[in-house]
Amino acid sequence: MCQALNCAGASIAFEDPTLPECPAVAEMAGLRVNRIGVDRDGLLVDDLTDEAAAVVTPAHQFPLGFTLSAQRRLQLLSWARRTGAVIVEDDYDGEFRYDRQPVGALQGLDPEHVVYTGTASKSIAPALRIAWLAAPTHLVPALREVLRFDETHVNVIDQLALASMIRRGDLDRHLRRCRTRYRQRRDRLGRAVATQLPGARLSGIAAGLHAVLELPGPPSAEQELLDRLAAHGVAVDGLSSFRHRPQDSPLGVVVGYATPPQPMYDGAVEALVAATRAYCADAV
Protein backbone atom coordinates (compact mmCIF):
# COMPACT_ATOMS: atom_id res chain seq x y z
CA MET A 1 0.00 0.00 0.00
CA CYS A 2 2.81 2.43 0.93
CA GLN A 3 4.62 1.71 -2.34
CA ALA A 4 1.46 2.34 -4.33
CA LEU A 5 1.06 5.73 -2.66
CA ASN A 6 4.73 6.71 -2.91
CA CYS A 7 5.56 9.83 -4.90
CA ALA A 8 8.07 12.65 -4.53
CA GLY A 9 7.50 14.59 -1.33
CA ALA A 10 4.40 12.61 -0.30
CA SER A 11 3.51 12.30 3.37
CA ILE A 12 1.29 9.92 5.28
CA ALA A 13 -0.44 10.42 8.63
CA PHE A 14 -0.57 7.85 11.43
CA GLU A 15 -2.38 7.94 14.72
CA ASP A 16 -0.26 8.65 17.78
CA PRO A 17 -0.09 6.33 19.66
CA THR A 18 0.08 3.41 17.24
CA LEU A 19 2.14 0.30 16.52
CA PRO A 20 5.62 1.71 15.84
CA GLU A 21 6.19 -0.80 13.03
CA CYS A 22 3.50 0.85 10.89
CA PRO A 23 5.10 4.29 10.45
CA ALA A 24 8.49 2.56 10.18
CA VAL A 25 7.29 0.62 7.12
CA ALA A 26 6.03 3.85 5.53
CA GLU A 27 9.37 5.55 6.10
CA MET A 28 11.19 2.59 4.56
CA ALA A 29 8.96 3.00 1.49
CA GLY A 30 10.13 6.62 1.14
CA LEU A 31 7.10 8.41 2.58
CA ARG A 32 7.30 11.23 5.09
CA VAL A 33 5.44 10.35 8.28
CA ASN A 34 3.25 12.77 10.23
CA ARG A 35 1.91 11.67 13.59
CA ILE A 36 -1.57 12.88 14.57
CA GLY A 37 -2.87 12.75 18.12
CA VAL A 38 -5.89 10.78 19.35
CA ASP A 39 -8.47 11.50 22.03
CA ARG A 40 -11.62 9.71 23.22
CA ASP A 41 -13.33 10.48 19.88
CA GLY A 42 -10.46 9.10 17.81
CA LEU A 43 -8.11 10.85 15.41
CA LEU A 44 -7.76 14.64 15.77
CA VAL A 45 -8.86 15.30 12.21
CA ASP A 46 -8.33 19.06 12.44
CA ASP A 47 -4.58 18.41 12.73
CA LEU A 48 -4.41 16.81 9.27
CA THR A 49 -2.97 19.05 6.54
CA ASP A 50 -1.72 18.05 3.09
CA GLU A 51 -0.94 14.37 3.65
CA ALA A 52 -1.44 12.00 0.71
CA ALA A 53 -2.99 9.43 3.04
CA ALA A 54 -4.06 8.82 6.63
CA VAL A 55 -3.98 5.41 8.32
CA VAL A 56 -6.70 5.00 10.95
CA THR A 57 -8.23 2.31 13.17
CA PRO A 58 -11.80 3.67 13.39
CA ALA A 59 -13.52 0.61 14.87
CA HIS A 60 -11.10 0.21 17.79
CA GLN A 61 -8.08 2.48 18.06
CA PHE A 62 -4.86 0.71 18.94
CA PRO A 63 -3.76 0.87 21.69
CA LEU A 64 -6.13 3.33 23.44
CA GLY A 65 -9.26 1.39 22.51
CA PHE A 66 -11.62 4.22 21.45
CA THR A 67 -13.95 4.37 18.46
CA LEU A 68 -13.79 7.12 15.85
CA SER A 69 -16.92 9.16 16.55
CA ALA A 70 -19.57 9.83 13.91
CA GLN A 71 -18.62 13.52 13.71
CA ARG A 72 -14.92 12.70 13.27
CA ARG A 73 -15.77 10.15 10.58
CA LEU A 74 -17.60 12.80 8.58
CA GLN A 75 -14.76 15.27 9.14
CA LEU A 76 -12.19 12.71 7.98
CA LEU A 77 -14.12 11.89 4.82
CA SER A 78 -14.60 15.60 4.11
CA TRP A 79 -10.84 16.14 4.46
CA ALA A 80 -10.13 13.28 2.03
CA ARG A 81 -12.58 14.64 -0.58
CA ARG A 82 -11.25 18.18 -0.24
CA THR A 83 -7.56 17.26 -0.51
CA GLY A 84 -7.77 14.17 -2.73
CA ALA A 85 -6.12 12.10 0.01
CA VAL A 86 -6.64 8.40 0.64
CA ILE A 87 -7.85 7.01 3.97
CA VAL A 88 -6.45 3.59 4.87
CA GLU A 89 -8.90 1.88 7.24
CA ASP A 90 -7.18 -0.77 9.34
CA ASP A 91 -10.00 -2.97 10.63
CA TYR A 92 -7.69 -5.28 12.55
CA ASP A 93 -10.18 -6.51 15.19
CA GLY A 94 -13.50 -5.01 14.13
CA GLU A 95 -15.28 -8.35 14.62
CA PHE A 96 -14.84 -8.23 18.39
CA ARG A 97 -17.30 -5.74 19.87
CA TYR A 98 -18.97 -6.93 23.09
CA ASP A 99 -21.47 -4.29 24.16
CA ARG A 100 -23.24 -3.75 20.82
CA GLN A 101 -23.09 -4.66 17.15
CA PRO A 102 -19.73 -3.86 15.49
CA VAL A 103 -19.46 -0.37 14.02
CA GLY A 104 -19.90 -0.21 10.25
CA ALA A 105 -16.79 0.20 8.14
CA LEU A 106 -15.74 3.71 7.17
CA GLN A 107 -15.17 2.41 3.64
CA GLY A 108 -18.90 1.87 3.20
CA LEU A 109 -19.47 5.64 3.43
CA ASP A 110 -17.05 6.56 0.64
CA PRO A 111 -15.48 3.64 -1.29
CA GLU A 112 -13.60 5.98 -3.63
CA HIS A 113 -11.60 7.61 -0.85
CA VAL A 114 -11.12 4.73 1.61
CA VAL A 115 -8.93 1.64 1.33
CA TYR A 116 -10.36 -1.05 3.63
CA THR A 117 -7.82 -3.53 5.00
CA GLY A 118 -8.43 -6.61 7.09
CA THR A 119 -6.68 -9.76 8.24
CA ALA A 120 -7.40 -13.20 9.62
CA SER A 121 -4.68 -12.78 12.26
CA LYS A 122 -7.05 -11.79 15.07
CA SER A 123 -10.15 -13.72 13.99
CA ILE A 124 -8.46 -17.07 13.26
CA ALA A 125 -4.67 -17.19 13.73
CA PRO A 126 -1.61 -15.04 12.85
CA ALA A 127 0.07 -18.05 11.21
CA LEU A 128 -2.62 -18.15 8.53
CA ARG A 129 -0.99 -15.11 6.84
CA ILE A 130 -4.12 -14.06 4.95
CA ALA A 131 -5.09 -10.41 4.56
CA TRP A 132 -7.20 -8.40 2.13
CA LEU A 133 -8.02 -4.91 0.99
CA ALA A 134 -10.83 -3.19 -0.88
CA ALA A 135 -9.33 -0.27 -2.80
CA PRO A 136 -10.75 2.67 -4.77
CA THR A 137 -10.82 2.05 -8.52
CA HIS A 138 -8.14 4.64 -9.27
CA LEU A 139 -5.62 2.88 -7.01
CA VAL A 140 -6.02 -0.60 -8.52
CA PRO A 141 -3.46 -0.16 -11.35
CA ALA A 142 -0.76 1.06 -8.93
CA LEU A 143 -1.49 -1.78 -6.50
CA ARG A 144 -1.32 -4.35 -9.28
CA GLU A 145 2.03 -2.97 -10.40
CA VAL A 146 3.43 -3.22 -6.87
CA LEU A 147 2.12 -6.75 -6.42
CA ARG A 148 3.69 -7.87 -9.69
CA PHE A 149 7.12 -7.65 -8.08
CA ASP A 150 6.45 -7.66 -4.36
CA GLU A 151 3.60 -10.06 -3.70
CA THR A 152 4.00 -12.62 -0.93
CA HIS A 153 1.85 -15.43 -2.23
CA VAL A 154 -0.67 -16.98 0.13
CA ASN A 155 -0.95 -20.75 0.19
CA VAL A 156 -3.84 -21.69 -2.12
CA ILE A 157 -5.03 -24.45 0.21
CA ASP A 158 -5.35 -21.94 3.05
CA GLN A 159 -7.34 -19.61 0.81
CA LEU A 160 -9.70 -22.41 -0.24
CA ALA A 161 -10.14 -23.53 3.39
CA LEU A 162 -11.03 -19.98 4.50
CA ALA A 163 -13.43 -19.56 1.56
CA SER A 164 -15.12 -22.81 2.56
CA MET A 165 -15.44 -21.65 6.17
CA ILE A 166 -17.09 -18.43 5.02
CA ARG A 167 -19.41 -20.17 2.55
CA ARG A 168 -20.66 -22.76 5.08
CA GLY A 169 -21.09 -20.22 7.90
CA ASP A 170 -18.32 -21.82 9.98
CA LEU A 171 -16.44 -18.55 10.29
CA ASP A 172 -19.51 -16.76 11.67
CA ARG A 173 -20.03 -19.51 14.24
CA HIS A 174 -16.35 -19.40 15.18
CA LEU A 175 -16.49 -15.61 15.67
CA ARG A 176 -19.59 -15.86 17.86
CA ARG A 177 -17.81 -18.36 20.13
CA CYS A 178 -14.74 -16.12 20.26
CA ARG A 179 -16.78 -13.04 21.11
CA THR A 180 -18.36 -14.84 24.05
CA ARG A 181 -15.01 -16.10 25.33
CA TYR A 182 -13.18 -12.79 24.97
CA ARG A 183 -16.04 -10.79 26.46
CA GLN A 184 -15.90 -13.03 29.54
CA ARG A 185 -12.14 -12.52 29.76
CA ARG A 186 -12.41 -8.75 29.52
CA ASP A 187 -15.18 -8.70 32.11
CA ARG A 188 -13.07 -10.84 34.46
CA LEU A 189 -10.13 -8.45 34.06
CA GLY A 190 -12.39 -5.42 34.56
CA ARG A 191 -13.87 -6.81 37.79
CA ALA A 192 -10.41 -7.55 39.18
CA VAL A 193 -9.18 -4.03 38.41
CA ALA A 194 -12.32 -2.37 39.82
CA THR A 195 -12.30 -4.33 43.09
CA GLN A 196 -8.59 -4.80 43.78
CA LEU A 197 -6.75 -1.84 42.24
CA PRO A 198 -8.08 1.46 43.65
CA GLY A 199 -7.07 4.38 41.48
CA ALA A 200 -6.52 2.21 38.41
CA ARG A 201 -8.90 1.79 35.48
CA LEU A 202 -9.31 0.04 32.16
CA SER A 203 -9.72 2.50 29.30
CA GLY A 204 -11.42 2.10 25.95
CA ILE A 205 -14.62 0.47 24.75
CA ALA A 206 -15.61 -3.15 25.38
CA ALA A 207 -14.00 -4.57 22.26
CA GLY A 208 -10.93 -6.20 20.83
CA LEU A 209 -8.33 -8.42 22.46
CA HIS A 210 -6.52 -5.87 24.60
CA ALA A 211 -7.17 -3.17 27.18
CA VAL A 212 -5.10 -0.32 28.58
CA LEU A 213 -4.62 -0.43 32.33
CA GLU A 214 -4.09 3.17 33.46
CA LEU A 215 -2.41 3.75 36.81
CA PRO A 216 -1.74 6.76 39.04
CA GLY A 217 1.85 7.87 39.04
CA PRO A 218 4.44 9.61 36.88
CA PRO A 219 5.23 8.34 33.36
CA SER A 220 8.86 7.90 34.43
CA ALA A 221 7.79 4.99 36.65
CA GLU A 222 6.80 2.81 33.69
CA GLN A 223 10.00 0.78 33.46
CA GLU A 224 9.97 0.04 37.17
CA LEU A 225 6.37 -1.15 36.85
CA LEU A 226 7.22 -3.35 33.84
CA ASP A 227 10.17 -4.87 35.72
CA ARG A 228 7.93 -5.65 38.70
CA LEU A 229 5.34 -7.31 36.46
CA ALA A 230 8.00 -9.31 34.58
CA ALA A 231 9.36 -10.59 37.90
CA HIS A 232 5.88 -12.03 38.57
CA GLY A 233 5.77 -13.69 35.14
CA VAL A 234 3.46 -11.07 33.57
CA ALA A 235 4.36 -9.91 30.05
CA VAL A 236 2.69 -6.65 29.00
CA ASP A 237 3.71 -3.62 26.95
CA GLY A 238 4.26 -0.16 28.36
CA LEU A 239 1.89 2.40 26.90
CA SER A 240 4.78 4.74 26.10
CA SER A 241 6.25 2.24 23.59
CA PHE A 242 3.43 3.13 21.18
CA ARG A 243 3.97 6.90 21.28
CA HIS A 244 6.28 8.94 19.09
CA ARG A 245 7.22 10.94 22.20
CA PRO A 246 7.27 8.36 25.03
CA GLN A 247 7.63 11.08 27.65
CA ASP A 248 4.12 12.33 26.77
CA SER A 249 2.48 9.06 27.75
CA PRO A 250 0.57 8.64 31.02
CA LEU A 251 1.53 5.69 33.20
CA GLY A 252 -0.14 2.55 31.87
CA VAL A 253 0.31 -0.86 30.33
CA VAL A 254 -1.35 -2.60 27.39
CA VAL A 255 -2.80 -5.92 28.51
CA GLY A 256 -3.52 -8.59 25.90
CA TYR A 257 -6.15 -10.81 27.46
CA ALA A 258 -6.56 -13.30 24.60
CA THR A 259 -3.19 -15.02 24.94
CA PRO A 260 -3.22 -17.14 28.14
CA PRO A 261 -4.80 -20.60 27.71
CA GLN A 262 -8.17 -20.80 29.41
CA PRO A 263 -7.02 -22.92 32.40
CA MET A 264 -4.30 -20.34 33.10
CA TYR A 265 -6.31 -17.16 32.61
CA ASP A 266 -7.53 -16.61 36.18
CA GLY A 267 -4.00 -17.14 37.46
CA ALA A 268 -2.64 -14.66 34.92
CA VAL A 269 -5.15 -12.01 36.03
CA GLU A 270 -4.33 -12.66 39.68
CA ALA A 271 -0.60 -12.31 38.98
CA LEU A 272 -1.17 -9.05 37.11
CA VAL A 273 -3.29 -7.60 39.90
CA ALA A 274 -0.99 -8.79 42.71
CA ALA A 275 2.15 -7.40 41.08
CA THR A 276 0.47 -4.10 40.23
CA ARG A 277 -0.98 -3.75 43.73
CA ALA A 278 2.43 -4.42 45.26
CA TYR A 279 4.03 -1.83 43.00
CA CYS A 280 1.39 0.78 43.87
CA ALA A 281 1.85 0.10 47.62
CA ASP A 282 5.61 0.58 47.37
CA ALA A 283 5.20 3.72 45.27
CA VAL A 284 3.08 5.50 47.88
Rank of each mutant, 00 (worst) to 15 (best):
R32T: 15
M28K: 15
L209R: 03
V146W: 11
F96H: 00
G199Q: 08
T259D: 03
L109K: 07
L139F: 04
N155M: 00
A26W: 01
R228E: 11
D172H: 13
R176P: 02
C22I: 15
A26N: 04
V146D: 04
A26D: 07
H113N: 05
A80R: 08
I124H: 10
L197N: 13
S121G: 09
D172L: 12
Q75I: 11
A131Y: 12
P250F: 03
S11A: 15
A59M: 09
A85K: 12
I87S: 07
A13Q: 11
A24V: 08
D39R: 12
L76F: 14
A200N: 03
D90M: 12
A127I: 11
D91Q: 01
M28R: 14
I36S: 11
V234G: 10
A200W: 00
V284Q: 14
L147V: 06
P260V: 10
L251T: 06
A274D: 11
R32I: 09
L272Q: 04
H210F: 10
D110M: 03
L175R: 10
G217M: 08
Q61P: 00
M165H: 05
G199T: 02
P17Q: 03
N155V: 07
S203G: 01
C2E: 09
G42W: 08
V38E: 10
G252F: 02
T49W: 15
G267C: 12
I157A: 14
H138Q: 13
R73S: 00
L272M: 09
A29N: 08
L272E: 00
R40G: 05
R185N: 10
D150C: 08
L239G: 05
S11H: 13
L160D: 04
K122I: 12
L226H: 04
F66W: 13
D158E: 11
D46N: 12
A135F: 03
F96N: 00
L64W: 01
A235M: 09
W132L: 09
G84C: 03
Y265E: 02
P198G: 06
T83L: 12
M1N: 04
L64Q: 02
L175H: 12
S249P: 09
D248Q: 11
P102C: 07
L77Y: 14
L74I: 07
